[in-house]
Design a binder for these strands. Structure first.
Lengths: 357, 357
DNA sequence: TTGAAAGCGGTACCAG
DNA sequence: CTGGTACCGCTTTCAA
């Protein structure tokens, strides 16, 4: 492996000094270097396939054009990887590189991950979580421009901007979709209390009823969990041995896995979906929602958009002018909400004709 | 954010030269620096919370203690993230940092990701894929110690070591589990042709029959796809309207999602699992296999072990002595196979008593 | 218009 | 045992 060409190599080949090379290649040649030399330099650089050494650049400039992304478990869990995908798209398009460190839910590793990244002089930091959650922001994140994606600064007075999905309107629009199909008795398997997303979606669920002038049945929302078995057992409780008049005509789920469990329960009970029962998912989980039988109608989380929005905001701060701090205290609400997207597939349909309500 | 302490700051505070600081802090103080000075230096370093600047170190040493991990879609897809988790564990424990770049299946980004990483002077590279597959190794990977995890050098004569799961014995042991339960008519939804894993698992499937002295029914293995709907439709074809005598008593699946589809089909048809039909998955996908109803018996992919094995091998080369190249040509088979693990849960059971075969 | 030199933060060699 | 100095690769200032 022969060594890479350096600016000195280029200078020698072009018969000029290193400084000239630097000036020309950084676009400040005009007015400083003779046109002729400029051409020779550019040609020499091309011939040697020269590109400046990023490490030397970092040492010199004290900026690395690297953004550190810390995640709780985005890499190692099956969820929400597209937040990073969206963020990385934006970073690359603006000439930045992202490096990802996953702490695998070990919060004691948060601080050290941040310190490691800071040590390596990242120009900015992003923290990304699986599922909306409060975050004890590692101290180090306050020392460089930083942003939160899918999590919220868990301090008395929040200091970091966050980008999150609009869960309330997600829950509301999902409910509206079902109301629009004529459903009036809708059950909601709303996930688990531990996630802040759950109550927000319930809130949207309820507000859709209110807005439609319908009574809200509080006893139709259940907090139990996020997995297939929870969906299955929840649905069995709602449907098995219950007279058709007492059964909900639709079940909304706080994620697609719950919906899988509900579909399974319906199959066991001989109920046809969506003819006898409509089922909604949430998340639009890749290769689950769209490949279920029937394919799930669901509320897609705007993962890529969230990542992109967060990275855009972060890079604006990194490259920004001096007065961004002042700005922030002024108009910036410290919060960006990205709307969810309704995806209609096959698991929802009109309320059964003879439905009693 | 006040600037971090440098070696010069420490030297001043301790009243010595930078060189002394360097020697002492790198353990080469004894015999070179007076005991007294050593103490002062160490104390000053502690007081200033000094740690050497990794960027300056990189520039100086031409080594960064960073390992670059390139993946096709491990970050952004829901699969195989634990390979990176296992690799990262090992790297951290040996004082290395990993940086991950995901190309999101855009193979034209492979080369540039590798070049970017190489530009930043990573000490080694690992390529990780979702699902076993052949890889057109980016040229750059040949310039530093490199290794492949879950993929195989797709060149006439392979140059890079790879770490892969032992799919043949995985397929065999899964089949043996079912044979041991008395099943003789076992169908196999074997994934899609496009993946090299599929034929290997089929091979294991067949070899289990041969080893048991049973005839192999080649018409019982199907290549169709990897998703829930494929499993569902495959199972319907095998079971729906087929007389019990003609039905397989067990269905093996090449991944857990196929198995979900099969369970769904069984529920539709009123078949009880595992009483009427045993179902096996593959992968032990997190929060799918263990939360299905019934929970899936499956063949777990050794993801963390693969990542750990690959990183161990890579770091040995990175830190290794001079003659590793020679070594390699000698005994090293360029391949590490990690065994899969049978996980028995609830979806498999003894063959139905009256079973005709 | 050009080149020499300093400095980013370290390490390592070599006189003293 | 100690401190001065060169060098890693690059940018930028300053004299010539």
């Amino acid at each position: 492996m022969q060594r890479k060409a350096t600016a000195l190599d280029v200078a020698k080949r072009a018969g000029v000094s290193r400084s000239a090379v630097s000036l020309v290649l950084n676009g400040r040649g005009d007015g400083n270097v003779a046109k002729e030399s400029q051409d020779r330099i550019r040609q020499a650089a091309a011939e040697l396939n020269y590109s400046p050494n990023p490490i030397a650049l970092s040492l010199r400039n004290q900026r690395t054009r690297v953004i550190g992304i810390v995640s709780d478990e985005v890499v190692t869990s099956p969820f929400d990887g597209n937040i990073i995908g969206g963020a990385d798209d934006v970073a690359r398009s603006r000439g930045f590189v992202t490096v990802v460190m996953d702490t695998e839910l070990d919060s004691s590793r948060d601080a050290s991950a941040v310190e490691t990244l800071l040590d390596r002089q990242v120009d900015g930091l992003m923290y990304v979580t699986v599922g909306l959650k409060p975050l004890d922001v590692p101290q180090g994140m306050l020392r460089v421009p930083s942003i939160l994606a899918n999590c919220i600064d868990n301090a008395p007075v929040p200091r970091l901007h966050h980008v999150i999905p609009d869960e309330v309107s997600g829950g509301r629009e999902a409910t509206e979709h079902l109301l629009g199909l004529g459903h009036r008795d809708i059950a909601f398997l709303a996930g688990a209390q531990s996630s802040p997303a759950a109550p927000l979606r319930v809130q949207g669920f309820q507000s859709a009823f209110s807005a439609a002038g319908l009574p809200v049945r509080g006893d139709r929302a259940f907090l139990a969990g996020w997995d297939i078995d929870t969906g299955f057992h929840g649905a069995m409780k709602l449907l098995d041995g219950v007279s058709p008049a007492e059964r909900p005509t639709a079940i909304m789920c706080a994620n697609d896995r719950l919906a899988v469990g509900v579909v399974l329960a319906a199959a066991r009970l001989g109920l046809s979906v969506p003819r006898d029962l409509s089922i909604m998912g949430y998340d639009d989980e890749f290769r689950i929602a769209n490949t279920m039988v029937p394919a799930l109608t669901t509320m897609a989380l705007p993962l890529r958009e969230m990542g992109a929005a967060a990275m855009t905001k972060l890079l604006d701060a990194v490259e920004g002018t001096v007065e961004e701090e002042a700005d922030q205290d002024a108009g910036d609400p410290l919060e960006t909400m990205v709307p969810c997207r309704l995806v209609i597939r096959e698991s929802t349909g009109p309320v059964p004709p003879g439905s009693p309500k």
